[in-house]
Design a protein around this nucleic acid. Structure first.
Lengths: 116, 116
DNA sequence: GGCCCTACATGTAAAACACACATGAGAGTG
DNA sequence: CACTCTCATGTGTGTTTTACATGTAGGGCC
């Protein structure tokens, strides 16, 4: 976005969908599409890219931060249900403290911006 | 960072150096190297990439958000002094409100994380 | 059969960021 | 005066992250 007369600003935390995902999964196991719909109110983004969402889920699984199992039988296509592991909970905790730090930095910035 | 057994987490706001730059320049005109040293306490990052810093400065100038002039004569190499324009102040204001939103989203996340 | 919704996924381009290196002035040291 | 150090401004290029587009497939509805 650093280029045209397009200096629209969003101020997003990078990879914010990742901790959001982990938090939702800590609350209860879920499948991808379900998470896709549950994410926006948590992230504040209107839409979440589904392609990348599935990629993140599989990357998390590769490192044993979540596990998955297929759930067939239900009406509609088969669903892959994801569940948080203990390691995954640990990562969520890391995110939480990183986000607290991030919030402090934003506060520092805004205080200085407001001239305090 | 989404790949190896490397799930270290930083939770940075994307392009955060940009509003930081604008804020510093609102306080007083400055040259690149000076900004480079003034940024870390504001962003919380240990180091800021100088290459990208200069690129951002010139991109900002292209869109008339800052102006620059060479300052020679002083001891040491010539410096390019950057100054914030009215449009630049406007962009800083946009960043500030975007950052307030971002902080609220983090709060929402943390509240839910802490089970409230 | 044609259309929509759910569900999972890959391909690829663009944006943001990190790392490495080049250039040059002046100042201090042996 | 060659050597190294700091200040200062940049370019080149690879990696990571995000965005946009597309593909496949089951099932319900009319």
């Amino acid at each position: 976005m650093v280029r045209p007369g397009q200096w629209g600003v969003r101020a997003r935390v990078e990879r914010f969908s990742e901790p959001a995902l982990l938090l939702l999964l800590r609350e209860r196991p879920a499948h991808g599409y379900e998470l896709l719909e549950a994410l926006p109110p948590l992230t504040g983004e209107a839409r979440v890219d589904m392609g990348n969402l599935y990629r993140v889920l599989r990357a998390l699984e590769e490192d044993a931060l979540v596990t998955s199992r297929w759930e067939a039988g239900e009406p509609g296509p088969a669903k892959r249900i994801y569940e948080l592991t203990t390691a995954g909970k640990g990562l969520l905790d890391e995110w939480a403290s990183a986000l607290r730090l991030s919030r402090e930095r934003i506060d520092t910035f805004l205080d200085r911006y407001e001239g305090r």
